[in-house]
């Protein structure tokens, strides 16, 4: 199978394919940011995408979520072609993501941040909202209820009416994940979720990622620099350098791959940490 390492358990291989990135190449002007990139994810997998700075990891995320349109190749989500689709429709199909640098709606309340992600499922139209009809009130209450359930799961319920921008950093990260989940995705894409976290927070994050994967039956793809997180929770890894895949495999295999060590894990500290 393209875009997967050898030797994964057969029960995983038997599950349906969620995301298939097929031979994707992307240029920024004359710069080749991503070259012939393949990736196939089966349902329920937790996969890491790693590589040194500037390797093209975030570009891959942006290609999947329609921020950029791939110059070449195909991206299919449950057999639907995503290349050419506008971002908001991709998200509505069931892909949600977080950002490297947190992008919350800082001046809105914590609850509203989550409710906004619920907007495509609001279930009432402009006329309902102008007249505040019974339909509006019912759906609005439902939406609030759902949003509060998400906040409860992430331990943010107490802070629902606070400004999102005033939350401490770790909670902002959590809120961003809660917001992504409120869009009701099947595939969750996390862009450096542990950036700026201390070791204890990373432990909590690892637990959280496992928990939401199981609770919401998600497939998770994540970019991360912190080896501690990647090596512990990812089922397998794809390593990129200069826009190309240089290795794939189980964390242990990748860790000992000489090419990877040279490109990325060469610093001894990174391995032993």
């Amino acid at each position: 199978m393209k875009g997967r390492p050898e030797g994964l358990p057969s029960d995983v291989e038997a599950r349906p394919v969620v995301l298939q990135v097929d031979d994707v190449t992307h240029f920024f002007g004359n710069l080749r940011a991503v070259y012939a990139f393949d990736l196939t994810l089966h349902q329920g997998e937790l996969v890491g995408l790693i590589g040194p700075n500037g390797a093209g990891k975030t570009t891959v995320f942006n290609l999947i979520t329609g921020v950029y349109q791939a110059s070449q190749g195909h991206i299919r989500f449950k057999d639907v072609e995503l290349v050419g689709m506008p971002s908001h429709e991709i998200i509505q199909m069931g892909i949600a993501r977080t950002f490297q640098n947190i992008r919350l709606f800082a001046n809105l309340t914590v609850l509203d941040n989550v409710r906004i992600a619920y907007h495509p499922h609001a279930g009432y139209n402009l006329l309902d909202s102008i007249l505040h009809t019974a339909q509006f009130r019912e759906k609005e209450a439902e939406m609030t209820q759902h949003a509060q359930e998400f906040l409860a799961i992430f331990g943010l319920e107490e802070r629902q009416n606070e400004r999102a921008g005033s939350l401490p950093y770790g909670l902002q990260r959590r809120l961003e994940i809660a917001r992504a989940l409120a869009a009701q995705p099947q595939l969750l894409i996390l862009d450096e979720p542990a950036a700026g976290m201390n070791p204890q927070e990373i432990d909590e994050l690892m637990e959280l990622i496992h928990f939401i994967r199981d609770r919401f039956e998600l497939t998770v793809l994540l970019v991360e620099h912190r080896m501690r997180l990647v090596m512990n929770i990812c089922e397998w890894l794809t390593v990129m350098d200069f826009g190309e895949v240089i290795a794939r495999g189980l964390p242990a295999q990748v860790r000992s791959d000489p090419q990877v060590i040279e490109a990325y894990l060469g610093r001894q500290a990174a391995i032993t940490r």
Binding site: R97, R103, I116, A117, H119
Partner: peptide, 14 residues
Amino acid sequence: SVREDERAAELVGI
């Protein structure tokens, strides 16, 4: 949400 962060709004499905 569009005022707050257009890109983020787009990427939560707005």
